[in-house]
């Protein structure tokens, strides 16, 4: 009996380690978003690029699209940028949301680094960002053909994120619609 009591700590500890070991396999960057399976919040944003139409939540219909949040002052966005340009070359519809940024700075950023976006809206005040629950840039939302948010990726999209996670989801959504 006494021996059992002394063995209790090691048994409890083994259980905790087992739980941690399973917990480690989970990806911490998958922050929960309350928007998942909810309609995209309504917004109408002015254009980033001069002589352009801007971006509205009503435009997310008919086909699954990506909504990428970026800013000219964001360093990680520059890391992600080549991946977005590659997506454009593959014909993936990506829209841009220029967050807490001047439209002229955002436009210059796109002129210098290349422009991966079909449509781009400027969220100068960051108000739309609040509705979207943006914690930092870059972030990317996957929105299905009914205008529902299906997935949120936090941080830059690495090529493996695209091939392993986002592309399969986009293919699935396209088949669904």
């Amino acid at each position: 009996m006494k021996r059992l009591l002394f063995a209790l700590p090691v048994a409890l500890f083994a259980a905790v380690v087992a739980i941690f070991a399973i917990g480690l396999k989970r990806d911490p960057s998958k922050l929960p978003s309350v928007l998942i399976n909810q309609p995209l919040p309504a917004f109408v944003l002015p254009a980033v690029r001069p002589h352009d139409a801007g971006l509205s939540s009503m435009q997310f219909r008919a086909e699954p699209r990506l909504l990428n949040v970026f800013a000219s002052w964001c360093v990680s966005c520059r890391v992600e940028h080549p991946v977005l340009l590659q997506l454009k070359a593959e014909g993936v519809p990506v829209d841009g949301l220029d967050w807490k940024d001047k439209a002229s700075d955002g436009a210059r950023y796109l002129r210098v680094n290349g422009d991966p976006y079909m449509r781009a809206g400027n969220d100068r005040s960051g108000r739309t960002g609040i509705d979207l629950g943006i914690t930092g840039v870059p972030e990317t939302f996957v929105i299905d053909a009914r205008g529902m948010v299906r997935y949120k990726h936090t941080g830059p999209i690495a090529p493996k994120d695209w091939t392993n996670t986002i592309k399969p989801l986009m293919d699935h959504l396209r088949a669904e619609s």
């Binding site: 021996r3 700590p9 090691v10 500890f13 083994a14 941690f20 480690l24 396999k25």
Partner: peptide
């Protein structure tokens, strides 16, 4: 640093050190 490989290693260290010590205790 968010790096699962490091996490596995540190979990190994904790499991090894504490586990051995607690087994020794038992």
């Amino acid at each position: 640093a968010l790096d699962a490989k490091r996490g596995v290693y540190i979990l190994g260290i904790i499991g090894g050190l504490t586990g051995t010590a607690l087994a020794l205790f038992a």
